[in-house]
Amino acid sequence: MDIVVLVKQVPDTESLVQIAGDGVSIKKDDIKWIMNPYDELAVEEALRIKEAKGGTVTVLSVGAQKAQETIRTALAMGADKGLLVNDPAAEGGDALATARILAAAVKNLPFDLIIAGQRAVDEDNYQVGAAVAEFLGIPHVSLVSKAELLEGRIRCQRAVEGGSVTVEAPLPALFTTQRGLNEPRYASLPGIMKAKKKPLEVKTVAALGLDPARVGAAGRKVVVKALRLPPERKAVRMIAGETPAAIAAELVRVLHEEARLI
C-alpha cells in the first residue's frame, strides 16, 4: 500500500497575526509555522495504515524552503520520504493552482491512496483535496472520521447532520480528514534523529512538466481583494453574587434585559 499525504505549512493560529501593508496578505516576520493540524491527522492515518498493511508513506508539499520543516516533522513521525515543490512560480496560487501542482507531483509517484487535510487552517478553502482527486480522475471522499481498508476499496465514515454515513470507493482514491479520525502521534526524539537521514527531494514546477503560467500567482483565478481581522472579542464579564441562586438570578436578568437572548 503506497500512500501519499498532502501537507501544508501554515501559521500557528496562536501566533500574532497581523495584516500586511498591502491589505491582502499577513505579516510573516513574527509568525511561527506549523504543520496544518488536519494534515497531522492525515499523516497519522497513513502511518497507521502502513503499520497494518505495509507499504510506504510519501509526504508531499508545495511551499518555500521553510516548508521542509513540516515535511521533516512528518518524517520524524514515521513517514518514509518527502517531496517539496519549491519554486517562486508556485507561490501565491489559489486552491486550484496549488492542486494542479500537487496532482502533477503525485502522478510521478506510486500511490494507492492519497490522504489530505480537509482544509488548511490559514485560508480555509476546503478545495485542494477535492481538486487534486479531480485532476487525477480518482474518487474523493471528504471529511472522513473513520477509514477502513478493504480489498481494493476504502470504506469511510463521514459525519452528517445528526448521524453518520458510510461510503466506499475503489482504490486509488483520495480522502480528507475530519477531527476525531485519530490522535496524531508525537514526533519522537529518535524519530527526529532518523528523519534527518530520510530522503527529501525538492522539485521545481518545470521539473513536473507544468506551464508556470497556469500555477502560482499567475494561474490564480480567485483573487484576494481584502483581508480583515475578526472583530475584537469583548472582555468576559463575570457575574458576581452572594449565593449560587443570586448569581443565577443575575445571569438570567443580564441575558434577558441586556443581551436580550432569552
Binding site: N182, E183, P184, R185, Y186, S188, L189, P190
Partner: peptide
C-alpha cells in the same frame, strides 16, 4: 530523561503515548 508525552489527567497513557527517552 525526557518527559513522557500523551499521558492523560489521571496519569494513564493515551493512544498517542510516547515514552520519554534517556539522553
Amino acid at each position: 530523561r525526557t518527559g513522557d508525552k500523551g499521558i492523560n489527567k489521571e496519569g494513564k497513557p493515551k493512544s498517542n503515548f510516547e515514552p520519554g527517552v534517556d539522553l
